[in-house]
């Protein structure tokens, strides 16, 4: 049981578990980042109003290995994954609603 809960904490498992049927918005945030709040509100809203799209927020500071692997340099960075978990795009900085919706529309 202990091993299972430890696996459950892995960011990759967190992402895979919540992969959306159409797309997943993986947001990397940090404590000293004000646009991260606005980005969280926007992406949460998009996920709530679009079935098949999910939003996962990762604390970049705690997941430096993943941050290095994905070459995340600043927060917020939003990585858009398709239904198979492949990266299809990313937004560095606070994205606008239209930008996210446009990127998602291309996926469909």
């Amino acid at each position: 049981m202990k091993a299972k809960s430890e696996i459950g904490q892995s960011p990759l498992v967190k992402i895979v578990d919540s992969l959306g049927e159409q797309a997943t918005l993986v947001q990397f945030s940090s404590a000293f980042c004000s646009p991260c709040r606005a980005t969280r509100a926007l992406l949460t809203d998009i996920a709530a109003t679009n079935p098949g799209i999910t939003h996962v927020e990762i604390d970049a500071e705690k997941e430096l290995a993943l941050v290095r692997t994905l070459h995340i340099r600043s927060t917020p960075t939003t990585v858009i994954l398709d239904s198979d978990g492949r990266e299809v795009g990313r937004a560095v900085g606070a994205p606008k609603r239209e930008q996210v919706l446009h990127a998602l529309a291309i996926l469909q």
């Binding site: 960011p11 000293f32 004000s34 500071e61 430096l64 290995a65 600043s74």
Partner: peptide, 21 residues
């Protein structure tokens, strides 16, 4: 903080990359 904090963390905190997962 958005631009620098993560970079500083990346430079100052070593993790054994993907092996950590």
């Amino acid at each position: 903080g958005c631009e620098m904090y993560l970079l500083i963390k990346r430079v100052t905190h070593h993790s054994n990359s993907i092996r950590a997962f």
